[in-house]
């Protein structure tokens, strides 16, 4: 069994395809969608947790790649810039999954990436703008 959080980026020409249907029907994966959106350029972004057998998961990833989707690791989508963080703690009551936690008695902020669901609330809640996202920078067209 494997359980993995990923981000799928859909180019405009396949944004209307029933991709999730295939993941469930053809690869017997359990799909838990965390967040989905389509930007004005009709590029889609889907954050989800996939679980199923290791083999099916690998086959599904290969198939998704063949379809022209870009697959990113969800845990790398939000970046905590510790050099910018002033450790006030304002973000810790805004983060809905406690991925941003306040350690006591150290009184410092810590980011637990694996708990992050990329809701992005912290980006604007941080007064020092210590939270950044890769998503806006990672263009689809350059193939990276």
């Amino acid at each position: 069994m494997i359980k993995q959080k990923i981000v799928l980026r859909f180019p405009p020409h396949i944004v209307e395809q029933p991709t999730i249907y295939h993941l469930i029907k053809d690869f017997e994966l359990m799909v838990n969608i965390l967040r989905a959106d389509i930007n004005p350029k009709k590029e889609g972004r889907l954050m989800m947790e996939l679980s199923g057998s290791e083999l099916n998961y690998q086959r599904a990833i290969e198939w998704l790649t063949e379809q022209g989707l870009q697959i990113l690791n969800l845990e790398q989508q939000i970046i905590w810039r510790s050099d910018r963080c002033t450790h006030c703690g304002a973000c810790t009551v805004i983060c809905p999954t406690n991925a941003l936690v306040f350690d006591r008695p150290e009184m410092t902020v810590r980011f637990e990436e694996e708990k992050c669901i990329v809701c992005e609330l912290c980006l604007r809640a941080c007064p020092a703008r210590a939270m950044e996202t890769l998503v806006e920078n990672a263009g689809l067209s350059n193939g990276k």
């Binding site: 006030c88 703690g89 007064p127």
Partner: peptide, 24 residues
């Protein structure tokens, strides 16, 4: 600084805008 206060019988999470680590 414990992380929550009781307000009108309800537990409310607390956060600081001032950095205690910085003050230290």
């Amino acid at each position: 600084k414990s992380g929550s206060i009781i307000l009108e019988g309800k537990k409310v999470p607390t956060a600081s805008l001032s950095s205690y680590a910085g003050a230290r």
